[in-house]
Nucleic acid binder design. Structure first.
Ligand code: ZN
Ligand code: ZN
Ligand code: ZN
Ligand code: ZN
Lengths: 170, 170
DNA sequence: GCATATGTGTTATATTATAACTCGTCAATA
DNA sequence: TATTGACGAGTTATAATATAACACATATGC
């Protein structure tokens, strides 16, 4: 296997957003794992929180807080910004979602519980966001920081460009 | 020399924001280089634009657009957001400043004209932002993207943490 | 059950960013 | 010389993103 993530052992599907895959399965697995992790951590995966994660998991795009809010409101949850922001904050804090600063948006984490520091590849054409294995990038970044005595606490590594499919179409 | 940037040949000072250095000299050199590059490119370094760059160059911190605007307004320039945003946009487009998305702010580029894709190290304690050499990080990122057929157009690599000085103090 | 912590919903407001129109300057043209 | 067109700067207005602070309910731990 050419990756270091937990691809689904059942189906062996590729684990990257850009690849064609059975996304329903993909989403279901991630949601289940997140719920289990929340339980283990004593964190409460309440209805709003779970629903927000489900919404993010609908596809591999990043959603703005207000997009999420609109969905929540339509489903009878609160319709004010804090409702969405708080749920998103919870998901990010617990590693169930990532914040993609380049586009002021949030995406479900596809590898919850794996303590990864991912790179995000954002297709500017189809808006898909892939969370790519980043160990070598992180290592290089850590080395650069260490060389000047800087200690990194959090980092974000994001790239904008075109995914294989969209590049092929152009 | 342990770096791949144009340190000043006159003074041989370290080229990183966190190091103690003659910053007046540092800023003056960068400003001069930027003005020369603008001229070469047929771009007009107008009074507002130059002033914004000078303001960013006052220290190695990143400034928000509204911080810049406040300074401009106090000096008799326009006092509406587009005045600041347009000057900042010009500087970023021409490689004279960088946008640091993690903190919604802008910092002068310390290596204008060098076609670098830097890493930003942001000290959460003193707010200083260092623009570190990033060739290895970029290489790792390019490799990760290439592995899945993604073509990168722009990327941002930012890390939040503590600089050597602030870490020493804690 | 009771006390407490936590989560949700609300109002209000802060912060960041852009659209669209106007005017002045300057330089190339007719 | 008058005209035009490009550009930059200033303005008004508004959009988009994000948080503070309070009221109330519900879950949790005792
Ligand atoms: Zn999927
Ligand atoms: Zn695409
Ligand atoms: Zn300096
Ligand atoms: Zn510091």
């Amino acid at each position: 296997m050419p990756h270091d993530h937990n691809a689904c052992p059942d189906c062996g599907l590729p684990d990257l957003a850009f690849a064609v895959h059975d996304h329903a399965h993909c989403a279901e697995q991630v949601l289940a794992r997140a719920e289990a992790l929340a339980q283990d951590a004593g964190a409460r995966m309440t209805p709003v929180r779970k629903r927000v994660l489900e919404i993010l998991l609908e596809n591999h795009k990043a959603l703005g807080a207000y997009d999420v809010l609109q969905r929540l409101a339509a489903e009878g949850f609160g319709n004010q910004p804090p409702v969405a922001y708080r749920a998103l904050e919870f998901l990010v804090e617990h590693g169930f979602a990532h914040r993609i600063r380049r586009v002021n948006a949030f995406a479900a984490c596809m590898y919850p519980g794996e303590d990864h520091a991912p790179v995000f590849l954002i297709c500017k054409t189809c808006d898909l966001v892939a969370e790519a294995p980043a160990a070598p990038v992180r290592a290089a970044l850590d080395a650069a920081a260490q060389a000047i005595g800087f200690s990194i606490e959090r980092s974000n590594i994001e790239a904008l460009g075109q995914c294989p499919a969209c590049r092929g179409a152009a």
